[in-house]
Design a protein around this nucleic acid. Structure first.
Length: 580
RNA sequence: GCACCCAUAGCUCAGCUGGAUAGAGCGUUGCCCUCCGAAGGCAAAGGUCGCACGUUCGAAUCGUGCUGGGUGCGCCA
């Protein structure tokens, strides 16, 4: 039950009637009319800016519109009173019974509570992680993985048709390096001394790859020139790395729908087709780029290249798609890959990049804009760095010192749930501190604990109620006389619950899953506040002597728990039943 | 040199796509509790929202120009 959209619908209907009746000029654009929670609770339960937004286009004084709208809104049974305030705000107070309806609806909706329809089945593709298949995932990948997955869950919840996709960078030079590194481990498996030369990947994780190669090929690859084995070993090692990455993601509770291969774009004409499509639009030409000012590379020399006229679609300079030796740049398969996504019929694309890839945003958007005829929007979310700490001390990563932190290390130390929640306690474009010790602290300072503790308390009182013989299944709770909830602290919590569906919409519209984490913290805070007050005011306690009253109180607690669970599900975090 | 991101309380950060008196946690100060409805509670102090213009009924939010920090800038992905 989305109270805010319900009341907004009412406001829009009344505005329509006013246009019909001649109280407002016809044909007014109503999109900017908002119904929101007021900042100050003394202003009522909801506020609308309708009169102020429409004053100018209607050519009327805002207060004149407000007075007429107020008179109409007052006749709705849900509305207790309407006040015109300030420059023309309408402050609405709702009848107390509305909160009982809201809580009953929340209990009936259960896990679907807050599920929205603003996505309208729009097909959206979210590409994230896309770590090179040359090793295990490290801590730097974690935040992007969590963010992408939570965003996918959020958009799904808001009614989008979501595809989670991983782009495997298996077409470049780094997978050749992987193959050569694996080959040395293969020699090692056979009993020879490996030569891990400079530039190869030294990690131990390739030892099992070498052993698997021995099992597959025996000694047949020994002393063979690279041309003989490179491709097979590359494929073999890449597949093993991807298997490892899939397991890493699974440990983080991330599941991809589609894995797309860069390599598969080569030799299939897809890159050529994408570039030719651009060429047909007159967006590909041979030319020479100016050297970047202020930072001239040592070996700069002007060369003619094949360029994409990305400046025609908002970029700052045109970008090369082919190197001077005739090979494609990395950008060319990226273009083809995004073209592929457009051709697969997605209505919207979202890419999640590390903040250090911010320089590619404009060119990628330019390519998608050109190839989709401007029809498919591409939103690129940049993920800032995670700073690691341990007990307040910076935790320096170093491959040499062996303090290189993998995704597995993090998950094994603090768990997937804590990792995921903490990763979402900042906006994606703000740096994030991650302290291995503090995230496990059981105190109010720790948002993960604080939210989980609220849920545990709810479960605790429900167990108590059950022990007292009170029926606390959702159907019984929803059927109770919830109008008995009338204490300001209780209504306050109900109001917070009422904001949940609206928050889902806002978060989904902005592709901002962190808002869910902040909301849950506030919701938990309201529950804890009520709990603390109940120490001094026993009538606020959830478990009462009278079973019927207990049921009413528990309904409020349970409705809060329903929303916490729904929110945590979006974050991909499992609610805890009990603190240990 | 250019582009992108960021700048909000002493610290770490929210701020609902322009709304009313800008919020939270930590820290500080004061009071209360130490009762497993537990892993503290209540309250206070603390702000020219980096700076300056502009847009309008109204700006932390939008525009322009500065200041300061981060990231990146052909033949690496």
């Amino acid at each position: 039950m989305n109270l805010f959209s319900d009341i907004r619908t009412l406001v829009l209907a009344e505005l329509d009637s006013m246009m019909q009746a001649g109280d407002l000029p016809g044909g007014l654009e109503l999109a900017a009319v908002a119904v929101e929670p007021p900042r100050d609770a003394s202003h009522g339960d909801m506020a609308t800016n309708a009169a102020m937004v429409l004053a100018k286009p209607a050519g009327m004084a805002p207060r004149a519109i407000a007075e007429k709208l107020a008179a109409r809104l007052k006749t709705d049974p849900r509305i207790a009173s309407v006040e015109v305030a300030g420059p023309g705000f309408l402050n609405l107070s709702l009848v107390p019974a509305i909160w009982a309806d809201l809580l009953a609806a929340t209990l009936q909706e259960g896990a679907d509570c807050g599920r929205g329809a603003i996505g309208a089945g729009v097909k959206v593709n979210i590409e994230f992680v896309s770590a090179n298949p040359t090793g295990p995932m490290h801590v730097g990948h974690v935040r992007g993985a969590v963010f992408g997955d939570a965003l996918a869950r959020l958009l799904d919840f808001a009614g989008y048709d979501v595809t989670r996709e991983y782009y495997i960078n298996d077409g470049g030079a780094q997978v050749d390096v992987l193959a050569r590194s694996a080959y040395e481990r293969y020699r090692e498996a056979i009993g020879l001394e490996p030569e891990i030369r400079e530039g190869l990947y030294p990690g131990d994780y390739l030892i099992p790859v070498g052993e698997a190669m021995k099992a597959k090929w025996g000694e047949s690859l020994l002393d063979q020139p690279e041309e003989v084995w490179l491709e097979d070993v590359r494929n073999f090692a890449t597949e093993m790395m991807m298997q490892m990455i899939r397991e890493d993601l699974a440990a983080l509770n991330v599941q991809m729908d589609v894995y797309s291969s860069e390599k598969a774009l080569y030799g299939t004409g897809q890159i050529e087709a994408a570039i030719n499509t651009l060429r047909d639009m007159g967006l590909i030409y041979e030319g020479t780029l100016e050297p970047p000012k202020g930072k001239l590379p040592d070996d700069w020399e002007a060369r003619e290249q094949t360029l994409f006229r990305s400046t025609a679609h908002g970029d700052d300079v045109d970008r090369p798609v082919m190197k001077s030796d005739g090979a494609w740049t990395y950008f060319a398969p990226d273009i083809a890959y995004h073209y592929n996504k457009v051709q697969r019929g997605f209505d919207q694309l979202i890419d999640i990049f590390g903040a250090d890839h911010g320089g590619y945003v404009k060119r990628m958007k330019a390519a998608v804009s050109a190839l989709s005829g401007g029809k498919v929007p591409l939103d690129i979310k940049l993920i800032q760095l995670v700073k690691l700490w341990k007990n307040g001390e910076p935790f320096k990563m170093s491959k040499r010192a062996g303090t290189f932190v993998t995704l597995r290390d993090v998950v094994e130390q603090v768990g997937a749930d804590v990792t995921r929640f903490v990763m979402l306690t900042r906006k994606n474009d703000a740096p994030l501190d991650f302290d291995f010790a503090k995230v496990l602290e059981q105190s109010k300072d720790n948002p993960v604990f604080y939210v989980q503790y609220a849920n545990a308390r709810i479960n605790s009182v429900m167990r108590k109620a059950i022990a007292a013989g009170v029926a606390v299944d959702d159907a019984s709770l929803a059927a109770a006389d919830l109008t008995q909830l009338n204490n300001a602290a209780e209504i306050n919590l109900a109001k917070k619950i009422a904001e949940w569906p609206r928050l889902v919409e806002i978060a989904a519209r902005g592709n901002e899953p962190h808002r869910v984490a902040f909301y849950l913290y506030e919701l938990a805070s309201d529950l804890h506040g009520l709990w603390n007050r109940a120490k001094d005011e026993p009538e606020l306690r959830f478990v009462q002597d009278d079973p019927a009253t207990t049921q009413v109180k528990i309904a409020l607690a349970r409705a809060t728990g329903v929303v916490i669970s729904a929110g945590l599900a979006i974050l991909g975090v499992t609610p805890v039943e009990e603190m240990r």
